[in-house]
């Protein structure tokens, strides 16, 4: 729970969210992660460090490789992020409900 702020900070970056989305499909090495993003491996490593510090991603040692995978908390944090975004969209439409109610009132006022 103390990690939540770090998790939200980590999720605030689109590249890091894309990395999480990729890792949600399975384990991947830094090289595999760097490929679709057209970023250098050090740049990806930097993003991975933020994700690891936030407890969203864990690494494993396999010979010279350090494949990363999603931590259990990573999935939960992603869900929370999505719920937040869904709320923002719902909030738009709740506001639109109010706008429509006001329009309806004005219309009735006009016809009287």
């Amino acid at each position: 729970m103390s990690n939540l702020d770090a998790a939200f900070f980590a999720l605030a970056d689109p590249t890091r969210r894309a990395i999480l989305a990729r890792l949600a499909k399975g384990e991947a090495t830094v090289m595999e992660l760097a490929e679709p993003f057209e970023m250098t491996q050090p740049a990806i490593s930097q993003h991975l460090k933020v994700l690891e510090d936030a407890g969203l991603v864990v690494r494993r040692v396999e010979g010279t490789k350090r494949p990363r995978r999603l931590a259990k908390g990573g999935i939960e944090a992603m869900d929370q992020w999505l719920r937040m975004l869904r709320k923002a969209l719902e909030k738009n439409y709740d506001r639109l409900d109010e706008v429509l109610a006001t329009m309806e009132k004005h219309k009735k006022g006009e016809t009287r």
Binding site: P14, A24, I75
Partner: peptide, 15 residues
């Protein structure tokens, strides 16, 4: 994943 557009959301996995 960016989710900024009208608060739009989803992911491959959890949607």
């Amino acid at each position: 994943a960016t989710g900024m557009e009208r608060g739009m959301e989803a992911s491959y996995v959890r949607l």
